[in-house]
Design a protein around this nucleic acid. Structure first.
Lengths: 332, 332
DNA sequence: TTAATTTGCATAAGTGCTTATATAAAGATA
DNA sequence: TATCTTTATATAAGCACTTATGCAAATTAA
């Protein structure tokens, strides 16, 4: 039974469950031994009804942190034991007002000294630990409320995953054998066709760039970026050279099965950095106004909504964004 | 939800349960979100099988503090997911040896980083509380192991109940009206008949004393003691005067429905103290050797087994005890 | 060496919560 | 004022354990 301690922090749930079970089963044994017709699970509800004199199901659930069905079930048990009674509220007949019955009051006379003994026993126990255990529990509750384990783990996982994503570029200057380049071309094509088909239709300009990226993008002075994640090409982006040191961010796509790993963001940042190194003074992109998540991503890396001046080569392009070179990047 | 805190020590079980639920459900959410085919409840068992490489159901149950059926169920789930495999031990075919499968090893590769993130998140959480929460839990566990809540409450309840028992005597010197004395006589008779009939048969000597205690006991220089508990006469004892400052403790009986409240002990002590005040130098009692609980009670208040010299007036009396006036009473 | 006891595991049923969903009354909106 | 949404409670089913019990293999006692 000591092994559980060695599992460390991760087994805290199991250890708490064991302590919980011990407390609850001891309480149960106490009622049984003292021949009091009561159960531990009824305690909080019965206690609070007595304290508040009259209270509804939902109010109890809120104040005790139970779910409503839990309170309904406990209340029904108390009603069947004739310890409380329920009446509908006059003004709002959905509400059920619970009050202690005469039999409940009589049972309370028996219960109160037992509760007092339990209270004192727990107090004594806690004192022997040398810690203000209840305060520690409060701390744990409040720290957990600020940021729970799920959120913490997600943050860590995201960071870990981002770290596992490797971005590399493919341009006229990149070395590499032909077979590898062919494989990359295929990935560039497939990943982009996949996402375009999902929301829109493939247009002539798409086909031109995707079928022959070497000629249409690289030879025109552009760069293609790939995101590699766990031995697979997970996403792409292209930096297209335009006139007068202008560049366009285009063909940015991430495979469906690796969404949510910040791959798009990492690609976008790589594109921006490359553009800066190329002395670009005008970086823009075109997208569709309905693609809110994408637009938010672009905003998060420094793009700002701009006027849609000239008609685009793409039917789907209804929204233009310019990169703001002066804005300091918020932390990524 | 803050109300639960105000319930104080007694609601510690409920508070622990809530924390437990939060940890477990967060872990569940993490596996689901990361699309890992695993469940929190499988963790400890799967982890330990991996650590020990091969282990049986019962060993797991012992080391984890789970019941054997719990481990059987978890193991079966792991087997159905093909994460572990079970083979019978050659030497003892009752034993089932569990080991991780290839698929289990593959899942572990996915799980370990997640577990690491959980581990770190809990560590971070605990650090933010400012307390060594796991150490506090250990303390709680060890203090609880030394003496659990049930035992503590029982001790307190016993003390409380003893305090509620009032012993009073009824002798030639006692004041009181006739009706009250008649009522006491009836109680003395009924309580004793009740217990005698339960184990033995009522004998002539019983009838003589019980039907006419005033004449047979009081007028002979004896004293009758009553224990009053919650407005009822709960037990009786008599101190019978014999020749040469000898006294006999007899007719000690406690109603069945108030057994276990130390009433007999309290009566016995009252009898002994009275005997001392009467300058008694030889206090004895006769009982039956089969009545072990009664004999233990007598021992606990200072009686010692003695030789059964003269044949008793009672058929059932097979065991004689003398009070040791020199022995210091152990704490009561 | 047989019979009785102990041990290891399986199975069934219970417990005390949960989530998901239904239902009816009340309140908001058009 | 009819409809749509929200709120209060009920009901059903699930979950992760528990206790109780059964069964067969192993061990101990006679």
């Amino acid at each position: 039974m000591n092994t559980i301690k060695q599992l460390g922090n991760i087994a805290i749930g199991t250890r708490l469950r064991m302590l919980t079970d011990k407390f609850i089963s001891d309480a149960d044994k106490i009622y049984k031994t003292l021949d009091v017709d009561f159960e531990p699970r009824l305690f909080t509800v019965f206690y609070l009804i007595n304290q508040k004199k009259s209270i509804t199901i939902t109010e109890l659930a809120e104040q005790l942190g139970y779910t409503q069905p839990a309170v309904t079930q406990i209340a029904n048990t108390l009603i069947s034991k004739k310890l409380i009674s329920a009446v509908k509220e006059k003004k709002d007949s959905r509400k059920k007002i619970l009050t202690i019955t005469k039999k409940g009051d009589e049972l309370l006379l028996e219960l109160i000294p037992v509760w007092q003994d339990i209270e004192n026993s727990v107090k004594e126990l806690i004192h022997e630990t040398g810690y203000d255990v209840l305060f520690v529990l409060s701390k744990l509750e409040s720290v957990l409320e600020k940021k729970d384990i799920f959120t913490r783990v997600m943050e860590k996982t995201k960071k870990r995953q981002i770290a596992e994503v490797r971005i590399f570029e493919y341009s006229n200057n990149s070395p590499g054998d032909a077979r590898f380049k062919k494989e990359l071309d295929k990935n560039f094509r497939d990943i982009n066709y996949e996402w375009i088909k999902k929301y829109f239709k493939v247009e002539k300009e798409d086909r031109k760039q995707l079928e022959n990226p070497g000629k249409e993008i690289i030879e025109n002075g552009g760069v293609i970026f790939f995101a590699e994640y766990k031995d697979m090409i997970a996403g792409t982006a292209a930096l297209l050279k335009k006139e007068n040191n202008s560049y366009e961010l285009a063909k940015m796509a991430v495979r469906d099965e690796v969404q949510g790993k910040q791959i798009g963001k990492k690609l976008g940042i790589a594109v921006i950095e490359k553009a800066k190194r190329l002395k670009c003074n005008n970086l823009y992109l075109e997208t569709n106004a309905t693609l809110t998540p994408a637009i938010n991503l672009y905003k998060s890396i420094g793009f700002e909504e701009a006027e849609m001046k000239d008609p685009s080569k793409y039917e789907r392009a209804t929204f233009r964004m310019n990169y703001n070179f002066n804005k300091k990047l918020s932390e990524i």
